[in-house]
Amino acid sequence: MAVITVERKPLTFLERTYLPQIAGGLKTTLKHLVAPKKTLEYPEQRPAIPTGYRGVPTLVMDPNGREKCVSCQLCEFVCPPKAIRITPGEIPADQPDRAHVEKGPKAFDIDMLRCIYCGLCQEVCPEEAIFLQNQFSMSGYSREEMVNHKDRLYELGGTLPDAHFKWDKKKAAEEHGNAH
Protein backbone atom coordinates (compact mmCIF):
# COMPACT_ATOMS: atom_id res chain seq x y z
CA MET A 1 0.00 0.00 0.00
CA ALA A 2 1.30 3.27 -0.99
CA VAL A 3 1.96 5.66 1.83
CA ILE A 4 1.10 9.21 1.10
CA THR A 5 3.03 11.56 3.28
CA VAL A 6 0.96 14.59 3.92
CA GLU A 7 3.01 17.54 4.96
CA ARG A 8 1.59 19.28 7.95
CA LYS A 9 1.81 22.98 7.45
CA PRO A 10 3.29 24.84 10.41
CA LEU A 11 0.73 27.01 12.08
CA THR A 12 1.08 30.75 11.82
CA PHE A 13 1.46 32.75 14.98
CA LEU A 14 -2.14 33.83 14.93
CA GLU A 15 -3.29 30.26 14.48
CA ARG A 16 -1.14 29.14 17.36
CA THR A 17 -2.96 31.51 19.68
CA TYR A 18 -6.20 29.68 18.75
CA LEU A 19 -7.95 33.04 18.90
CA PRO A 20 -9.19 33.32 15.28
CA GLN A 21 -10.56 29.82 15.45
CA ILE A 22 -12.22 30.50 18.77
CA ALA A 23 -13.77 33.64 17.35
CA GLY A 24 -14.92 31.71 14.29
CA GLY A 25 -16.44 29.04 16.49
CA LEU A 26 -18.24 31.59 18.61
CA LYS A 27 -19.61 33.16 15.44
CA THR A 28 -20.94 29.81 14.28
CA THR A 29 -22.62 29.05 17.56
CA LEU A 30 -24.05 32.56 17.74
CA LYS A 31 -25.69 31.98 14.36
CA HIS A 32 -27.23 28.80 15.66
CA LEU A 33 -28.28 30.53 18.83
CA VAL A 34 -30.71 32.67 16.87
CA ALA A 35 -31.42 30.17 14.10
CA PRO A 36 -34.84 28.51 14.00
CA LYS A 37 -35.08 25.33 16.02
CA LYS A 38 -34.77 22.09 14.13
CA THR A 39 -36.23 19.60 16.60
CA LEU A 40 -39.72 18.23 16.79
CA GLU A 41 -41.74 18.94 19.90
CA TYR A 42 -42.58 15.32 20.14
CA PRO A 43 -45.90 14.63 21.78
CA GLU A 44 -47.58 17.51 19.93
CA GLN A 45 -45.62 17.23 16.72
CA ARG A 46 -45.17 13.80 15.25
CA PRO A 47 -42.55 12.77 12.76
CA ALA A 48 -43.71 11.75 9.32
CA ILE A 49 -43.52 7.96 9.21
CA PRO A 50 -41.98 6.75 5.97
CA THR A 51 -43.59 3.89 4.14
CA GLY A 52 -42.13 0.56 5.12
CA TYR A 53 -41.52 1.77 8.65
CA ARG A 54 -41.34 -1.08 11.10
CA GLY A 55 -43.22 -0.01 14.18
CA VAL A 56 -45.12 -2.07 16.69
CA PRO A 57 -46.41 -5.36 15.24
CA THR A 58 -50.17 -5.35 15.00
CA LEU A 59 -52.96 -7.63 13.78
CA VAL A 60 -55.21 -6.33 11.06
CA MET A 61 -58.73 -7.08 9.94
CA ASP A 62 -59.83 -7.53 6.37
CA PRO A 63 -62.15 -4.92 4.80
CA ASN A 64 -65.14 -6.85 6.08
CA GLY A 65 -63.91 -6.42 9.62
CA ARG A 66 -63.07 -10.09 10.08
CA GLU A 67 -59.84 -11.16 11.62
CA LYS A 68 -57.37 -12.39 9.07
CA CYS A 69 -55.14 -14.37 11.37
CA VAL A 70 -55.78 -18.10 11.23
CA SER A 71 -53.26 -18.81 14.01
CA CYS A 72 -50.92 -20.82 11.83
CA GLN A 73 -48.22 -19.90 14.37
CA LEU A 74 -45.59 -19.29 11.71
CA CYS A 75 -44.86 -15.89 13.24
CA GLU A 76 -44.49 -17.54 16.62
CA PHE A 77 -42.12 -20.00 15.01
CA VAL A 78 -40.06 -17.44 13.14
CA CYS A 79 -39.92 -14.81 15.86
CA PRO A 80 -36.23 -14.59 16.82
CA PRO A 81 -36.73 -13.36 20.41
CA LYS A 82 -39.82 -15.57 20.92
CA ALA A 83 -41.99 -12.58 21.64
CA ILE A 84 -45.11 -14.00 20.07
CA ARG A 85 -47.31 -16.51 21.81
CA ILE A 86 -50.47 -17.81 20.19
CA THR A 87 -53.13 -20.10 21.50
CA PRO A 88 -54.96 -21.45 18.48
CA GLY A 89 -58.62 -22.20 18.58
CA GLU A 90 -61.41 -23.46 16.39
CA ILE A 91 -63.96 -21.04 15.03
CA PRO A 92 -67.34 -22.47 15.98
CA ALA A 93 -69.59 -23.55 13.16
CA ASP A 94 -72.34 -21.18 14.26
CA GLN A 95 -70.57 -18.11 12.91
CA PRO A 96 -71.81 -18.08 9.33
CA ASP A 97 -69.44 -15.44 7.99
CA ARG A 98 -66.36 -16.96 9.47
CA ALA A 99 -66.98 -20.61 10.14
CA HIS A 100 -65.44 -21.65 6.85
CA VAL A 101 -62.10 -20.27 8.01
CA GLU A 102 -62.24 -22.93 10.74
CA LYS A 103 -59.27 -21.70 12.74
CA GLY A 104 -58.45 -18.47 14.48
CA PRO A 105 -56.39 -17.32 17.42
CA LYS A 106 -57.99 -17.83 20.78
CA ALA A 107 -55.24 -15.73 22.29
CA PHE A 108 -52.50 -13.78 20.60
CA ASP A 109 -49.86 -12.16 22.78
CA ILE A 110 -46.86 -10.18 21.66
CA ASP A 111 -44.44 -9.35 24.43
CA MET A 112 -43.18 -5.94 23.44
CA LEU A 113 -40.36 -6.20 25.95
CA ARG A 114 -39.01 -9.02 23.83
CA CYS A 115 -39.95 -7.79 20.36
CA ILE A 116 -37.01 -6.56 18.34
CA TYR A 117 -39.08 -5.07 15.52
CA CYS A 118 -37.37 -7.27 12.94
CA GLY A 119 -40.49 -7.66 10.83
CA LEU A 120 -40.02 -11.37 10.24
CA CYS A 121 -43.56 -12.05 11.48
CA GLN A 122 -44.96 -9.73 8.84
CA GLU A 123 -42.78 -11.31 6.21
CA VAL A 124 -43.71 -14.87 7.10
CA CYS A 125 -47.45 -14.36 7.56
CA PRO A 126 -49.25 -16.33 4.84
CA GLU A 127 -52.53 -14.53 5.53
CA GLU A 128 -51.13 -10.98 5.58
CA ALA A 129 -52.60 -10.58 9.02
CA ILE A 130 -49.70 -9.18 10.98
CA PHE A 131 -48.14 -5.86 10.07
CA LEU A 132 -45.50 -3.68 11.61
CA GLN A 133 -47.24 -0.37 11.26
CA ASN A 134 -46.34 3.20 12.12
CA GLN A 135 -46.93 2.96 15.85
CA PHE A 136 -43.52 3.55 17.39
CA SER A 137 -44.02 4.40 21.04
CA MET A 138 -44.89 1.65 23.45
CA SER A 139 -44.76 2.33 27.12
CA GLY A 140 -46.22 0.92 30.26
CA TYR A 141 -45.80 0.81 33.98
CA SER A 142 -45.47 -2.95 34.35
CA ARG A 143 -44.27 -5.95 32.45
CA GLU A 144 -47.84 -7.16 32.06
CA GLU A 145 -48.80 -3.91 30.45
CA MET A 146 -46.11 -4.36 27.86
CA VAL A 147 -47.66 -7.54 26.56
CA ASN A 148 -50.06 -6.74 23.74
CA HIS A 149 -53.03 -9.06 23.84
CA LYS A 150 -55.24 -9.87 20.92
CA ASP A 151 -57.81 -7.10 21.38
CA ARG A 152 -55.07 -4.52 21.77
CA LEU A 153 -53.30 -5.84 18.70
CA TYR A 154 -56.45 -5.46 16.63
CA GLU A 155 -57.08 -2.04 18.10
CA LEU A 156 -53.59 -0.97 17.02
CA GLY A 157 -53.81 -2.66 13.67
CA GLY A 158 -57.18 -1.58 12.44
CA THR A 159 -58.28 -2.58 8.98
CA LEU A 160 -56.03 -2.76 5.98
CA PRO A 161 -57.14 -3.17 2.36
CA ASP A 162 -56.98 -6.74 1.17
CA ALA A 163 -56.18 -7.48 -2.44
CA HIS A 164 -57.11 -11.13 -2.33
CA PHE A 165 -60.45 -11.66 -0.61
CA LYS A 166 -59.32 -15.23 -0.25
CA TRP A 167 -61.95 -16.25 2.26
CA ASP A 168 -64.76 -14.48 0.45
CA LYS A 169 -63.88 -16.43 -2.67
CA LYS A 170 -63.75 -19.60 -0.66
CA LYS A 171 -67.16 -18.91 0.79
CA ALA A 172 -68.56 -18.11 -2.65
CA ALA A 173 -67.16 -21.36 -4.03
CA GLU A 174 -68.76 -23.27 -1.19
CA GLU A 175 -72.10 -21.68 -1.74
CA HIS A 176 -71.82 -22.19 -5.46
CA GLY A 177 -71.25 -25.85 -4.89
CA ASN A 178 -68.99 -28.06 -6.87
CA ALA A 179 -67.09 -26.16 -9.49
CA HIS A 180 -67.54 -28.72 -12.19
Partner: peptide, 13 residues
Protein backbone atom coordinates in the same frame (compact mmCIF):
# COMPACT_ATOMS: atom_id res chain seq x y z
CA UNK B 1 -31.38 26.70 27.56
CA UNK B 2 -28.27 28.24 25.99
CA UNK B 3 -26.96 24.80 25.18
CA UNK B 4 -30.26 23.94 23.55
CA UNK B 5 -30.46 27.12 21.55
CA UNK B 6 -26.93 26.74 20.29
CA UNK B 7 -27.79 23.21 19.27
CA UNK B 8 -30.99 24.33 17.50
CA UNK B 9 -33.19 22.82 20.15
CA UNK B 10 -35.89 24.50 22.18
CA UNK B 11 -34.48 23.18 25.45
CA UNK B 12 -36.44 22.43 28.62
CA UNK B 13 -39.94 23.77 28.19
Amino acid sequence: KVAAWIQDRPGPN
